[in-house]
Design a binder for these strands. Sequence first.
RNA 1: GCCCCUGUAGCUCAGUGGACAAGAGCAACUGCCUUCUAAGCAGUGGGUCGCAGGUUCGAAUCCUGCCAGGGGUACCA
Length: 658
Amino acid sequence: MSADPFQDFFQACQDLLSAQVEVPPEAALTVPPRREFGDLSSNVAFVLAKPLRRAPRQIAQELVAKIDPSTSPLVAKAEVAGAGYINFYMDYEAFAAHALETIRAEGAAYGTSEPEKRLRVLVEHTSVNPNKEWHIGHARNCVLGDVIARLYRHAGHEVEVQNYIDDTGKQATDSLYALRYFQPEPQPETKYDHFVGEHYVRLHRILGREEDARAELKALEGQPLEGEDAAKAEVLRAELAQIAEVKAGIVELMHHVEHGEYVQDICRVLDAQLQTAWSLGASYDLLSWEGDIVRSGLFQEAMDKIKGSPYVYVAESGPKAGCLVMNMTDFWEGGKATEDDVLEKVLVRSNGIPTYEGKDIAYQMWKFGLLENDVRFRLYTVQPDGRELRTTWREGEARRRPKVDVVINVIGAPQSYAQAVVYTAMRVTGHEEEYRNSRHLAYGMVYLPSGSMSGRKGIGISADEVLQSTVDEAYERVKAKRAAELPEDEMRRIAEAVGRSAVRYFMVQFNPSKDVLFEIDQVLSLDGNTSSYLQYANVRTESLMRKAADEGLDMAAIWQEAGSLQLSELADEEKDLVSALARYPGVIARALAALAPNILTDYAFELAGLFTQFYHKCAVLKAETPELVRRRLALSRATNQVFMNTFGILGLDKLDVM
RNA sequence: GCCCCUGUAGCUCAGUGGACAAGAGCAACUGCCUUCUAAGCAGUGGGUCGCAGGUUCGAAUCCUGCCAGGGGUACCA
């Protein structure tokens, strides 16, 4: 017996079958659609029908006749059903004992067996340009990455979370320039990233006029100008002159930014953005600044290394003459490519400036520990959850990098091609293993009912706003319900927990690959399939245990003997609950393998529903016999344990009252 | 043009290791709070699983072709 009760039942059924017949690998043992069909169902008879040239039902009947369930404590019986399914039924009494005992013994570790190999995993997420406030799409990235990191940690792996700071890019420069250009009055009451973002958008309103102004002027200049037209042309010329001035100013400023002269200013924006991350319950281990990676010589070393490959060379002619290019033709797996030029990727332009892919290749090589040089780093701050946050820095300790096994980059789906280029560079340089262990968690965009968001135009909903609205809504709810019994600060605390959790849940409840339509009402409702439902179900487990203690029952003692309680004649609701609790480890494994947190949210919602049904149908504290009370308290305690573990991974807040 | 992702109920989404009657939440409608918290429960109505072929005992799921939406495909950032 293992720490995965459902897997044990699965294995038991599998063994019973294999003892009678060689089970082909394509035969499946799956959970049937309805409980009348048992707890696991095998289609092996269908698969064997063809090679044996016999009817599936006949094969199934012969197999079932030979199977002896009494040799397996968890299996009650096997039956033939339908056209030839072999349905296995659990011995629920034995199974419930095993499940409860496992959950009790494993506790916070329940759900994850010791990994065969403890991996070092590097998760990069967030990586938002430090130039304006986050919108909800950034929040999706952050929460997805945070949950993936927590999943790996829960599974016993060693995780480092990095947040890449593009401090030398155009966006950061634009914002810095906007502040110099407009010289706005400081607004201490406005969160700094919002303040800067406002002026960034203002700057782009000016720049965005260029094309139109040019066209309008051209239309006017076709004829002799007089009166109103002459004045209008003058205005347009002035506008274009202003645009030219701004653009020149940005280019000039860019040189200074690239030399790291404005790190302090960028930190101010970054710090405001980090507040958003922390209020969403996320944290990081390292801030990786692009400027530091370039200045520390990592980029140069990576390019020198990659130049050693026969597939990397300076193009001598053609449109890419003078560029350092990488020919990926022999290595490309990122989709069926037919046009050769797509596969000849520029890494360094003819003017010596690297492309994004070029820089990202260096970063990826550094992540895997493939470079000799290293950045220096220092402590940046201690985060609200107590985790230390480090940052790369121009001076300080040298960072001794351990070998990393897996690199997961949480980056939007539009960057799929660029990511494929970066990973392909690993195999081009002979690092096949690193190539295979590079994973792009490509997530879909977040859209508003009004269309897509645009950072430049300032269209979108900020993550801070969404969070605040949700907390406000939760506050109204808790106040309407509990104003009489709870103090103000307690209601505030609950509202924070409910609001934060609701936003997090929304961000990961969909398949990552899908685009998400963000409707604020769906988050604000706090009804139905939301984190509130899970929190509410868990509050009920808490409440039951509290009341049990009030009635003089020794909860700890009951839980201690969970596996040896009276577990016969379980009600259907109890069976369903036990079965769901036992399936938790498998859910974790699937979510991890697929990098899909929505597998876990789906499960958690189902579990909450099953517990709620149990709660409504089966009296716990008021059950008919003391034995029944103890059993149902143990089931509640077990559910509470699985909720705790699930909440830990999803980063949802546990509540005692709501 | 080529490549990738997506198309399931009015809306938002699960299900894509093939399996015996397509699921959930929201919205609509009907009931249920002196009874372990009604952010809840029970129930009703609502679907040619984008379309057309194919493979199979069996297809929302696999294959082919089409249609629709989004993204990518630059020495852009």
